[in-house]
């Protein structure tokens, strides 16, 4: 029998840093004077995964599939509709104000747009140092030294701290964003599309920076991206998302070399770089057509059935559960077990 923890495994393991159970976030669509909700955007619809200490999980999917929403729910920037988020064993959904502050210092975020993620009216010194001062993270009167330390750690000059964000390039700004997150001494960093706004030449630098910081500080990452090539380098495991649900989750080599889900195969076929197995993949590549269906009214059964090249009759009817097909390899597709029998329905 296959081994490895199931994503639905309720028993918390000691090495789990973060554990997300059946997370849902539905945004109400309000209309009219009274703001009645006339429907919901099912941005995240029942997602479970866990991240262990020192691990990097890559979360991949097309735009609008809800991956950023997951990131924001984790930090409670959005209030989840349902589901549990356990961080170091505590349910962060239940945290009250004071505990929430303590929790937030442990989980930080790096944002997508380096131009919008830094306050244009504050100097770098303030952007990085404000949290240090507010939360007393450095010794009295030494916060500036700490800022300089952080700046050199992310590869910037300590004297850059007197400048304003607009005096930096996109890559440098992203480094400032990383330094700001590091200032809180976090254990987990949610990187929401950390390099997608950057030039390709800069992307590698920032990815490498994240990688080196991880080892130095024992960080864990949740790296959100729409590009498999970006997460390939940095991730230990990869989760693929489609329309608010996970369709496949496995160690990165398994995803790249033995993708199971037709959607994952299609995503890999779309990677233009000569990545692992690129040449073979290109030979028999299957590109999917069409757009992502609306998350307001998602397709019945398997949400991918409208675009799936391997669609079967049952796909329309039965929602495939996430099943284990190899060590730590989970797929939600009727082609791999679960066909006909679906414990979720």
């Amino acid at each position: 029998m296959m081994t490895g923890p199931s994503p639905y495994d309720p028993s918390p393991s000691a090495s789990d840093l973060l554990r997300v159970q059946d997370l849902k976030k539905h945004f109400p669509i309000r209309k009219g004077l009274l703001g009645r909700s006339v429907g919901y955007v099912y941005a995240v619809d029942g997602v479970s995964f866990q991240i262990q200490k020192g691990e990097t999980l890559g979360l991949v999917g097309e735009s609008g599939c809800g991956k950023s929403t997951i990131g924001r729910c984790l930090l409670r920037l959005y209030e989840p509709t349902a589901g549990k988020i356990l961080f170091c064993g505590t349910d962060i959904g239940q945290l009250q104000k004071r505990d929430l502050i303590r929790f937030r210092t442990k989980m930080q975020m790096i944002f997508q747009d380096p131009y919008s993620s830094l306050n244009p009216r504050l100097r770098v010194r303030e952007i990085i140092g404000e949290s240090i001062r507010v939360h007393g993270l450095a010794k009295e009167g030494q916060w500036q030294e700490r800022v300089q330390e952080l700046l050199s750690e992310v590869g910037l000059q300590p004297d850059h701290m007197a400048r304003y964000p607009h005096e930096f390039s996109g890559g440098q700004r992203q480094r400032i964003g990383v330094a700001r997150a590091l200032a809180m001494n976090p254990e987990l960093i949610v990187a929401d599309e950390p390099v997608s706004a950057l030039d390709v030449s800069i992307q590698a630098q920032v990815i490498n920076l994240l990688d080196s910081l991880k080892e130095k500080h024992g960080l864990s990452y949740l790296v959100i991206a729409h590009d498999l090539a970006v997460v390939e380098h940095i991730s230990d495991r990869i989760a693929v998302m489609y329309l608010g649900k996970l369709v496949e989750m496995a160690r990165d080599r398994d995803i790249y070399l033995h993708p199971k889900h037709p959607y994952t195969e299609a995503l890999l076929a779309a990677v233009p770089t000569p990545a692992a197995g690129g040449r073979q993949r290109r030979k028999n590549r299957k590109l999917i057509r069409g757009d992502v269906p609306s998350p307001i009214n998602p397709p019945s059964g398997c949400r991918f059935h409208t675009r799936c090249p391997k669609v079967m009759l049952d796909c329309k009817r039965i929602e495939p559960p996430l099943v284990m097909v190899g060590p730590g390899h989970f797929v939600a597709c009727l082609l791999y077990g679960g066909g006909g029998s679906c414990p979720n329905v």
Binding site: L77, R104, S117
Partner: peptide, 24 residues
């Protein structure tokens, strides 16, 4: 995003309003 960042840095609403939104 810088306001979201301020939230995730666990700043109070007053601080976010006065230091991050008002100057802009």
């Amino acid at each position: 995003e810088f306001v979201l960042a301020a939230k995730s840095l666990a700043f109070s609403t007053t601080r976010i309003l006065v230091r991050h939104i008002l100057p802009n």
